[in-house]
């Protein structure tokens, strides 16, 4: 009962602290000639961006370490063996979802999958408040950037495979007056992609877990983390990549 009264206290009587759920400002971009010309002088750099940098470094070092001295026949259970299985399953996923002849998308899809899974699981890192780690996907800027890449891929490869004439003709299918609806539909795809990931990670991983951690620090958050961070995070990463593959292959047909 004590737990619930504390929870109700926290949620209703203390006005929620915005700072707790928002990424912190780490530093400001220094003011000099170049940044002034680009109009980004003194822009705040938040912990989302620095966490992404850390992820890039960690994943880059890991890739370098895993592909060092490659062997023709790796031992069972060695790093190369495990990574080969991972790459193989990525290729299988792309082949099964997008159809044959789409293997060139494996690098993008694989990167998306690995990056999203790792960044959704940042909430599990112990001491992330001290290290200033913040789930990058709980920021609209990250998810919209990824959705923008997907949007570019959809239309670039759509035009490339169908030809520009057929591509624009498809906007007037099945009826000419459907043109505005088709345009809105095409714009809504990346929007829903971005908002789905953002809403899930912010609502589940950051806000609910933040409230739970601030009320009770032992036991219950661990169990809740299994669902809100591990299950939802891996599932949302999978869904983002699956939908990316589906959108691209649908536009190319």
């Amino acid at each position: 009962m004590d737990f619930f009264s504390k929870l109700i206290d926290k949620m209703l009587f203390n006005s929620p602290n915005i700072e707790e759920f928002a990424p912190q400002v780490m530093f400001h971009i220094p003011e000099n000639g170049l940044t002034k010309a680009l109009q980004i002088a003194n822009a705040p750099v938040k912990s989302t961006v620095t966490t992404t940098w850390i992820l890039i470094v960690v994943l880059g070092l890991f890739s370098w370490w895993a592909t060092r001295d490659l062997k023709e026949e790796p031992e069972a259970g060695s790093v190369q063996n495990v990574i080969e299985a991972l790459v193989d399953s990525m290729q299988g996923l792309v082949r099964n979802t997008m159809g044959p002849g789409m293997q060139k998308f494996t690098p993008y899809i694989g990167t998306l999958m690995i990056y999203l899974t790792i960044s959704n699981l940042i909430g599990l890192v112990p001491g992330r408040d001290i290290l200033h780690l913040y789930t990058p996907t709980a920021d609209l800027n990250t998810t919209f950037a990824l959705a923008a890449i997907t949007f570019f891929c959809i239309h670039y490869f759509g035009i490339k495979s169908k030809g520009i004439g057929t591509y624009f003709k498809d906007y007037f299918e099945p009826m000419p007056f459907m043109f505005p609806l088709n345009v809105i539909g095409n714009l809504a795809d990346p929007m829903s992609l971005a908002f789905r990931l953002f809403g899930n990670m912010l609502g589940g991983g950051v806000v609910i877990m933040g409230l739970l951690y601030s009320v009770v620090a032992l036991g219950i958050p661990g169990i809740a983390d299994l669902y809100f961070t591990v299950f939802a995070g891996v599932l949302q990463a999978f869904i983002f990549t699956m939908l990316t593959m589906t959108y691209i292959s649908m536009e190319m047909e």
Binding site: I18, F195, G203, V207, Q236, L243
Partner: peptide, 22 residues
Amino acid sequence: LGAAVAETTGIYGLVIALILLF
């Protein structure tokens, strides 16, 4: 996959609620 897509509209509501609160 289908369940997660069906969840999208609920997530839109959640985003609006979070914006209103925080």
